[in-house]
Simulated scan of single mutants.
Amino acid sequence: MLEGELVRLRALEPEESDRIHGWVHDPDVGRWMNHSYPRSLAQLRKRAEERPVNSYELVVLGIEAKADGQLIGIIDLRDAEPEVGNAELDIYIGEAEYRGGGGYGTEALRLMCRYGFNSMRLHMITLWVVAENERARHVYRKVGFTEDGRHREAFVAMDGKRHDMILMSMLKGELRS
């Protein structure tokens, strides 16, 4: 378990699928997320029960608010390659009252990046963000990510409109407190 002042990062439990199902279908949460075909609650529960244990290649953790013990989001490091020391990060805060200004996402990012650099011995963590998602880009820059490039019209929103994606990265030693 990784712990800060506001959040605790911990393994997800299969019974938390109900909460995650609600987030996945919340338009505010899903606005800038890649979408697959709609999944039922039963499908999400089955996927959670069959989820492989966390490993070097994929670490998926729940973001829990320390104040009330409520699961508020998910963060992961995936596609980790020990040969080169790189991994890709994904994060979202599902609970509306914890989005936009409380520092929960920022602290979760710092904890996960610190874990990646120190415990996993990563050299670089990358992420992709939709260019119009300025709030997320601001948080990523604040913790030390830099913009590396743009993938034009690579994201298709739920309304069918295309948006550019920004590739951001952070090297070991660039994490800001």
Score class of each variant (00 low, 15 high):
residue 34 N to L: 13
residue 56 Y to F: 15
residue 162 R to H: 13
residue 177 S to T: 11
residue 1 M to G: 05
residue 142 K to L: 11
residue 8 R to E: 11
residue 25 H to V: 03
residue 63 I to Q: 03
residue 35 H to A: 15
residue 128 W to C: 02
residue 148 D to E: 15
residue 143 V to G: 07
residue 68 D to A: 07
residue 99 R to G: 08
residue 166 I to W: 00
residue 113 C to P: 00
residue 50 E to N: 14
residue 60 V to M: 11
residue 159 D to K: 09
residue 145 F to D: 04
residue 77 L to N: 07
residue 116 G to W: 03
residue 141 R to A: 15
residue 75 I to W: 06
residue 32 W to P: 01
residue 11 A to T: 13
residue 1 M to N: 07
residue 38 P to Q: 07
residue 131 A to V: 11
residue 129 V to T: 14
residue 166 I to M: 08
residue 114 R to L: 08
residue 19 R to P: 00
residue 86 N to T: 10
residue 111 L to Y: 01
residue 168 M to I: 12
residue 91 I to N: 10
residue 106 T to C: 02
residue 104 Y to T: 06
residue 65 A to P: 01
residue 88 E to G: 00
residue 45 R to W: 00
residue 98 Y to T: 03
residue 173 G to A: 09
residue 116 G to Q: 05
residue 165 M to C: 09
residue 158 M to W: 04
residue 6 L to F: 05
residue 156 V to K: 14
residue 111 L to N: 06
residue 42 A to F: 05
residue 111 L to W: 01
residue 14 P to H: 08
residue 17 S to R: 00
residue 36 S to Q: 11
residue 142 K to C: 10
residue 173 G to Y: 08
residue 163 H to E: 09
residue 120 M to G: 01
residue 4 G to W: 10
residue 105 G to A: 04
residue 157 A to L: 06
residue 48 A to K: 01
residue 49 E to R: 14
residue 9 L to V: 09
residue 39 R to T: 12
residue 157 A to V: 05
residue 111 L to V: 04
residue 101 G to R: 13
residue 94 G to Q: 03
residue 93 I to S: 08
residue 109 L to T: 02
residue 81 E to D: 13
residue 153 E to N: 14
residue 13 E to M: 12
residue 65 A to S: 12
residue 135 R to F: 02
residue 101 G to L: 12
residue 57 E to T: 10
residue 74 I to R: 08
residue 50 E to V: 01
residue 74 I to G: 00
residue 23 W to C: 06
residue 132 E to Y: 00
residue 62 G to P: 04
residue 44 L to R: 14
residue 71 L to R: 04
residue 32 W to G: 02
residue 98 Y to H: 13
residue 100 G to T: 07
residue 158 M to F: 04
residue 107 E to K: 02
residue 97 E to F: 00
residue 53 V to A: 15
residue 7 V to F: 03
residue 172 K to Q: 13
residue 28 D to P: 00
residue 84 V to Y: 13
residue 81 E to V: 13
residue 83 E to F: 09
